[in-house]
Design a protein around this nucleic acid. Structure first.
Lengths: 111, 111
DNA sequence: ATGTTACTTAAGCATTTGCTTAAGCAAGGA
DNA sequence: TCCTTGCTTAAGCAAATGCTTAAGTAACAT
């Protein structure tokens, strides 16, 4: 019995393709946030944010826990790791042609 | 701090969100291919493939060279490296998750 | 009980996506 | 020349996306 659901790469990449949703992921990387906190920096309705959060949740990128009437949202890393794993297969394609990026990646590894 | 401001992450992630387009990228990772060669394994019209290639090209993932009436397609790594760079920022989130999962699996012998 | 807060869901609408078939077009072969 | 090949573009359609406003729900305060 699997403890974690299968990751749907279609849904994950689609979720990542909208700037507001990527921004929400960036916000969540700083820690858990409520829906209102996540909505604050964006110039769309709270309803729109709620719908974006549903897209992220359907992609498995978001975990929501209810604390009273506040919904606390947390980033779920598994789908990101799946997306990473897919992309990194083709690493040779940009490392071969772009030395600068390869160096950047190596620099990232030593942290 | 973007390395390649000409890469549009919206377009790149959207391009990666369709299974046929990801499959095309996998095919191209084996080497250059013509449109017909790329179309062969897929159960859609050549026109549909042509349209998928346009999406990939608009995202910068595809480089095309015309050899007579044959269009040779090659994978362009730069947008993939940008997608990689965006995702890898959040590596800590799935490394934590994977550690947690690993611990769960360790104490979960009755699979 | 009534109101306020924090959110979700419904309905509606414009735009985009993904496919089809059909037509178009340039390159090579007979 | 005419025909085929390799591929693109156009037109049309159903479904999905991204937003809006309005209504609904549940928790908490007064």
């Amino acid at each position: 019995m699997l403890k974690h659901p299968d990751v749907n790469l279609d849904a994950v990449f689609a979720a990542l393709s909208h700037p507001i949703r990527r921004s929400i992921i960036e916000q969540l990387s700083e820690g858990e946030k409520s829906v209102s906190e996540l909505a604050e920096p964006h110039d769309v309705s709270l309803s729109a944010i709620s719908q974006h959060l549903r897209v992220l949740e359907d992609a498995g990128l978001l975990q929501q826990t209810h604390e009273g009437r506040v919904r606390r949202c947390a980033l779920q890393g598994k789908p990101l790791s799946e997306a990473f794993s897919w992309i990194v297969q083709y690493r040779i394609f940009w490392e071969d042609t772009l030395e600068a990026i390869a160096q950047q990646v190596e620099g990232d590894d030593e942290t």
